[in-house]
Design a protein around this nucleic acid. Sequence first.
DNA 1: GGAATTTGACCACC
DNA 2: GGTGGTCAAATTCC
Length: 324
Amino acid sequence: MEAGMSEEKSALVAELVRVLEMVRQLEAHMAGQQQQQAGGEQRCRALVRTMRDSIDRAVHMAMSSCAGGQPESPPSGGDGSPRSAGSDQAGDFRGRGNAAGQCKKRKTLPKWSTQVRVSAVQDVTPLDDGLSWRKYGQKDILGAKYPRAYFRCTHRHSQSCNASKQVQRTDGNPLLFDVVYHGSHTCAQAQQHGAAAHPGGSNQGARPAAASGPGEHSQSQAQTTASPGFEAAAGPALPFSLPSNGPAAGADDAGGSRLPGGGARATASHFVSPATPECLARDVPHPRDAELASTTNSPMPMEEMDFMFPLDAADFLENPASYF
DNA sequence: GGAATTTGACCACC
DNA sequence: GGTGGTCAAATTCC
């Protein structure tokens, strides 16, 4: 058994080294020419894609090791959803009325977290994983500066997809979002996007946002596997309503800021990530966004935002365990 | 009319 | 008892 472990570790290290190398190349690219050469963008995309694949493999291996070789935990699943942790459905179902046995807190579901970075404070929606998420709640967390938003798969009822996730802005860095996934997607859409959710941005198949409302999907990413496609950047719906909590939140909501009800609908950032399937079409910035933009961060070029890496590669290499 | 978000309340766990 | 997670009604937008 040890042998197997060592072998796996070696492979893991090799994979991580590759990723690191690619990250460096990517950085060099971005630092240099990205703005002028169209080819640079393609190059970056290719690198990102490769990186994702490597990370996927690495994560899988790492998780296998951590889990004692259990095949189920690895977030990488076939569905590409944020990492479908293979096991998932453990019968979750909580619910108000579930008196009997299921507790509301899904402790039995596999869970993994990720950190997603956006380019500007107004980009309240981290990545979009190409899946449909529906927000079902938001809550202020004790000690946290920002509220936590709760999402679950839009197809939860129709397809019994139990995936859910929690998105919360980190206190220290408004540009960073902690995304915690619970369970994996079992819905049909997940299967499709899973395969297609390349960060490389090929799945922009994006639908016109027909049914997807303002915020179903939201962010994504998978830390551990980074594969689903982290395209960070644009987001349709805000995970939270950037209330007055926001540090920079301008307080004035003039207009109709967000009223109860579909209020948040029109807030998205104007970035269109190539990979954000559904979220794209979301339109424009809420007046407040613009305001925030000017006060907070400077907008970053699309190319840069597109591939925000969910995690710090260097840090990941140094402390891989901390990411699992 | 359908779909989605917001928000308050309820329930379970620590 | 406090906090976190989820439900469901109300409201709004497409």
